[in-house]
Design a protein around this nucleic acid. Structure first.
Length: 515
RNA sequence: GGCCGGGUGGCGAAGUGGUCUAACGCAGAGGUCUGCAAAACCUUCAUUCGUGGGUUCAAAUCCCACCCCGGCCUCCA
């Protein structure tokens, strides 16, 4: 086999460290190492959480598409962290455990599975490795001991703390001056902390009670600080220096600064660990349903219950650059679903006109990838394509290479469909693009995207009965009766499409019901 | 309060000095098709870029002020 590197525009990625878009050069010429901050599994992921993994997946697929294999690690935080700095020391995991009347390990397992299931529904490829925090407690203790030995820690009643003045350039990633921050403005101070930015490495269990999750340590029974696990697990699996660390933009100012400080103290070097620190922006819901603390938030499951297919959310995420805020509403999502239905419908129509061929196996095979480059599948798909196809693919490549400009890539799908290529050429171009977009255009039929809203007043069987009655009326040219049934079905959230297969479909539920 | 980022058509969203009378999608409008619709397809849809000043031959893009929105300073994607 020839080289793994595929020709194309040089990949440029935005690095939060210097807030600049830089040319990407992997440390290992054929494999890129990526670590993504994963969820704390004390509740279901809301759709804003999920945006982060669609971003990470797009990054990873882009590297694969451009010829890089990836070693991708996502962590699962199954250790509870404080809901507040109150002394009770109740943490999210413990609270969930009480609320659901199940032990904390069951809680973690339940929400871990739910999270992985959400990612699968969004067609997010599995990472090379899932890394669970509780599997690495002793690694964390050893790491914390090393920090202690390096002289960057101090002990308080509440645990072991990191002295952020002991590393040079603390907080550089945050771009904020250490002075002028209003410590205590919104937070209860931890008594004895030397600097406002100091953070816990090990949280000692309160003397008043035992946590469900606690471990013995040189600092007494307790639990590791949240920032510790990412340093430990990324270093364990990807080495003390790796290529890219991703996370939500809310991690940029604190969590990742702390992680960098730990990495620097541990290695005794100024290198932050990862070369690129990349952050996705938030998904904004003006209706205020993105706040877990208010108890109500949109999950993928709640969208499905309204009749929205998960891939519509994926398309929605891709319609905006990952560093921009994305406005969310059911209406916007409904628009994305329409767009996706049209794309899938167009692909299906083209497939009717093309003889089955070996290359058609490629889209499905990608789903099993745990990090391999897409050089081979791309070569198969793109072999012998005409100049027009090469041109549009190179534009696709150019936009993708420019810090993952997915919003400028989506129009190329339409351009490809409207182009002058043969059906097979068109499909092969789309298949190659979909290796990155992950919209699953080839394995999905329009009817797969149509889900019955839970609030629908009719069952599918009841709809079929009414459809048959309407068909009978139409045959008898009794259009008054036929239209009455159609009105009834429309009111029940069913759209009728005579002459199509299938001849009707569910419409997602929108807040203010409209057609 | 401090520090970041943003405000582009009905909605989402590209565009950061001239090719912008501003990509693309959704919605809307007109058309083809249809018993009529729907779906699909075709056409159309911002002389204008939060507000007010300024710089420049030239600004959505640079500068200043103001208004609004988001993030971080606490766990959070």
């Amino acid at each position: 086999m020839t080289a793994h590197v595929t020709e194309g525009a040089p990949l440029r990625l935005f690095n939060s460290l210097n807030r600049k878009t830089e040319g990407f050069t992997p440390m290992d010429p054929v494999q890129t190492r990526i670590y993504s901050c994963g969820p704390t599994v004390y509740n279901y992921a809301h759709i804003g959480n999920l945006r982060a993994y669609v971003f990470t997946d797009t990054l990873r697929r882009t590297l694969n598409w451009k010829g890089q294999a990836v070693k991708h690690v996502i962590n699962i935080t199954d250790v509870g962290h404080l809901t507040s700095d109150q002394d009770e020391g109740e943490d999210k995991m413990e609270l969930a455990s009480k609320a659901m009347e199940r032990d904390i390990w069951q809680i973690a397992d339940h929400f871990t599975q739910a999270f992985k299931n959400d990612l699968a529904r969004l067609n997010v490829l599995s990472p090379t490795l899932w890394s669970t925090a509780t599997d690495h407690i002793h690694d964390m203790i050893a790491f914390a001991q090393a920090l202690e030995k390096a002289g960057v820690t101090y002990e308080l009643e509440t645990g072991l703390y990191f002295d952020t003045t002991k590393v040079s350039g603390y907080g550089a990633l945050a771009l904020t001056p250490k002075e002028g921050q209003a410590e205590g403005a919104r937070v209860e101070r931890v008594e004895g902390k030397r600097n406002p930015s100091d953070f816990a490495i090990w949280r000692r269990s309160p003397s008043t009670g035992k946590r469900q999750m606690e471990w013995l340590s040189p600092w007494g029974p307790g639990a590791p600080g949240w920032h510790l696990e990412c340093s430990v697990m990324s270093m364990k699996y990807l080495g003390s220096r790796f290529d890219i660390h991703t996370g939500g933009i809310d991690h940029r100012e604190i969590h990742h600064c702390n992680e960098i400080a730990q990495n620097q103290a541990f290695t005794g070097q100024t290198h932050p660990g990862a070369h690129w620190w990349m952050h996705n922006n938030f998904l904004i819901d003006r209706s205020g349903k993105m706040s877990k603390s208010k108890g109500e938030f949109a999950t993928l499951t709640s969208l499905v219950a309204k009749g929205f297919h998960p891939l519509a959310l994926r398309l929605m995420c891709l319609s905006t650059h990952y560093r921009s805020e994305l406005e969310f509403s059911d209406e916007i999502l409904a628009g994305q679903l329409v767009r996706l239905k049209r794309l899938v419908g167009a692909v299906s129509a083209l497939r009717q006109r093309v003889e089955p061929a070996p290359w058609m196996r490629i889209p499905a095979e990608i789903g099993f990838s745990s990090g391999a480059a897409f050089a081979f599948p791309r070569a198969i798909l793109e072999q012998g394509l005409p100049g027009a196809a090469k041109k549009i693919l190179s534009e696709f490549d150019r936009e993708l290479a420019d810090d993952l400009m997915t919003p400028r890539i989506l129009p190329l799908l339409d351009e490809t469909l409207h182009g002058k290529m043969t059906p097979e050429e068109t499909l092969r171009v789309l298949a190659s693009m979909d290796l990155v977009l992950g919209l699953n255009l080839f394995a999905t039929r329009r009817s797969d995207l149509v889900l019955r809203p839970e609030t629908a007043p009719l069952s599918a069987a009841e709809v079929e009965v009414l459809m048959a009655q309407r068909m009978q009326a139409r045959s008898a040219r009794d259009f008054t009766a036929a239209d009455r049934i159609r009105d009834q079905l429309n009111a029940a959230g069913v759209d009728i499409m005579d002459g199509q297969i299938p001849p009707w479909e569910w419409r997602p539920t929108l807040p203010v019901s409209q057609k």
